[in-house]
Design a protein around this nucleic acid. Structure first.
Ligand SMILES: [Zn+2]
Ligand SMILES: [Zn+2]
Ligand SMILES: [Zn+2]
Ligand SMILES: [Zn+2]
Lengths: 133, 133
DNA sequence: ATAAACCTTAGAGTATGGTTTAAGGTCAAG
DNA sequence: CTTGACCTTAAACCATACTCTAAGGTTTAT
């Protein structure tokens, strides 16, 4: 499979696949005489693995760690995978909390502003930002 | 007030204040003979405005738009401020949804993995990433 | 007088996850 | 045999929001 084929099969652009290679995430199993990248079926699985990992919110670095486990399962233990997942879960929960806090503040601002065509002289959004604690 | 004083009063680092100036967010009202920046009380209010705006999740560009309204209220209308707030609110709600989706997926992965010291051969986290739809 | 603390600038570096460009080599169809 | 599709590389660029560095000028306290 050439890079263009993998692009179609995996939904990851050729550009990005080359970038992933440079980042050590996915090396093609072979290079042809013309130096073209050749990907195996296992490489396709890896590409999809990366895609799912990203969909879970894992960074490329974290994905890299997960891939290391996947690639050599017998040399790794469940605890490692669970720790990575646990950390990400916490991180995401913290992000959600921050965003919920913002959402609440913004909802109030949004609610109290009339949103009309009148001068912003007494706009509650602007005053809240000027004078909030 | 010199930049160090504003740093203390506003809680925004001098570095960042200079960066904000370069970005057009907060220009000191004067420069001394020695070219030092001199900030007024109004500048302090503006600095705090920026800080609150950031705390609401507004980007520097959005903060800049809000500042333009604040600075010249009579030339702006509520509708403008409300539109900016509305967009941000939507954006944040979308982010929360994405994160909630990730959280759900991760929670399942986390729940099913034993997390023990046994080989990752049959780790549910790794297999889910390998074989998920 | 001299040292510490503060100020100035332009520009480079950091982090993330790519995207784009330039300049060119290879392959398959008509 | 040429045209267009596809492949190669290194390196620059994008966005965001800083953060730091280098090299130097100023103020203040002792
Ligand atoms: Zn109004
Ligand atoms: Zn309003
Ligand atoms: Zn297990
Ligand atoms: Zn496991």
């Amino acid at each position: 499979m050439k890079i263009g084929d993998l692009e179609k099969q995996s939904g990851i652009s050729a550009h990005t696949l080359r970038y992933y290679e440079k980042s050590g995430l996915l090396k093609p199993s072979k290079r042809g005489d013309n130096n073209y990248r050749h990907y195996s079926n296992e490489d396709l699985i890896t590409a999809k693995f990366i895609k799912r990992s990203k969909a879970c919110g894992f960074s490329l670095a974290e994905t890299s760690s997960l891939l290391a486990i996947k690639t050599d399962k017998s040399q790794h233990v469940c605890a490692e995978a669970k720790a990575i997942t646990h950390n990400k879960l916490q991180e995401i929960e913290e992000q959600i909390q921050r965003l919920e806090q913002m959402k609440e503040t913004l909802s109030k601002l949004h609610h109290y502003c009339c949103g009309g065509q009148e001068s912003a002289e007494f706009c509650s959004i602007i005053s809240a930002l000027e004078e909030g604690e």
